[in-house]
Amino acid sequence: MTSAPGYLPYEPQLQPVPWAQDIWTVNGPEVAYRLWGLTLPCPTRMTIIRLPDGALWLHSPVACVPDLVAAVEALGPIAAIIAPNVFHYTHLADWARAFPQARVFGLPGLAAKVPGIAFTALDQPTTAHWAGLIESHVVALGDFAEVVFLHRASRTLIVTDLMQNFEAGRIRNPLVRTVLQLGGATGPNGRPSIEIRLVALAHRNALREGVEQMLAWEPSGIILSHGACYRKDATTEIAKAFGRAGSETEA
């Protein structure tokens, strides 16, 4: 994490915020990553879903701090912790240790990055008790794979890195802002980052199948792990995001 945020944080920080019935978002501190010699700030967001039996499903955990842990515990017992791709694991071990009764779901390759954690495969059919309540689809693009989800009750699509919607006005460094704009990470239309778009060139069919599934779900809103979410016009935003990527990835 960076000590001085390079991206104006979404408020409130590290508190569950209602999105719809039985679903919350948590804005987390930014993480930083290196690209072309620059340090790029990346805001984070966790999603919490309460299942019909009262248990909680946590997607892409943010920083595990005492006040947030207490707030989450007040919502219900944690049953599942989800790592939607092999890059979203920074805080995974902390949450797994804090809630040893929870099953941790992840893709192949995560076990090597987070030793000591027992993973349940996220890319295989599962008998987890959230099956049928939360739909999932694996978008496998070679070295990059991500699982996208639909919370059926609220018709909310949950996407991690396949769609990013950084707000240019929140990026404090002008050079970083320009780089992110050139890379396509800034809105108002969310889209995959340039790295993912380049990887997808060799996996056009898999990307197309993933986009078709997201559209077939007909979501009403989209929660993004990075940047501004969409409360409406979800299918339009998906079409915009992958329409441009689609011109690069269609056979």
Rank of each mutant, 00 (worst) to 15 (best):
M1L: 08
T2K: 02
P5C: 02
Y7F: 14
L8M: 05
L8A: 10
P9C: 00
E11Q: 07
L14H: 02
P18R: 00
A20P: 00
Q21G: 01
Q21F: 00
W24P: 02
T25C: 06
T25V: 11
V26H: 01
E30F: 02
Y33H: 03
L38P: 00
L40S: 12
P41W: 12
C42D: 13
T44S: 14
R45M: 11
T47R: 12
P52R: 03
G54H: 11
G54T: 02
L56R: 03
L58P: 06
L58A: 07
A63V: 01
D67F: 02
L68R: 03
V72R: 01
L75W: 10
P77N: 05
A80K: 12
I82L: 01
I82K: 04
P84C: 03
H88A: 11
Y89W: 09
T90L: 15
L92T: 05
A93R: 14
A98G: 08
A98P: 07
F99P: 01
P100I: 06
A102V: 03
A102E: 09
R103L: 08
G106D: 08
G106N: 13
P108G: 15
G109Q: 10
K113E: 11
K113C: 10
G116L: 02
I117K: 11
I117M: 14
I117S: 12
A118E: 14
L122F: 09
T126L: 10
G132V: 07
L133S: 12
L133N: 10
I134M: 08
H137C: 10
H137P: 00
H137G: 00
V138D: 12
A140C: 01
F144V: 04
L150Q: 13
L150C: 12
H151Q: 09
H151D: 12
R152G: 01
L157V: 04
L157Y: 00
L157E: 01
I158R: 09
D161E: 07
L162W: 09
A168R: 08
G169F: 11
R170C: 04
N173T: 02
V176W: 05
G183H: 00
G184R: 08
A185L: 13
G190A: 12
P192D: 09
S193N: 15
I196L: 15
R197P: 04
L198Q: 15
L201F: 00
R204Y: 05
R204N: 09
A206K: 02
A206M: 02
L207W: 10
E209F: 05
V211Q: 05
V211A: 11
E212I: 13
E212G: 11
Q213L: 07
S220Y: 03
I222N: 09
I223L: 15
L224E: 09
H226D: 06
G227Q: 05
A234H: 08
T236A: 15
F242Y: 13
G243I: 01
R244M: 04
A245R: 04
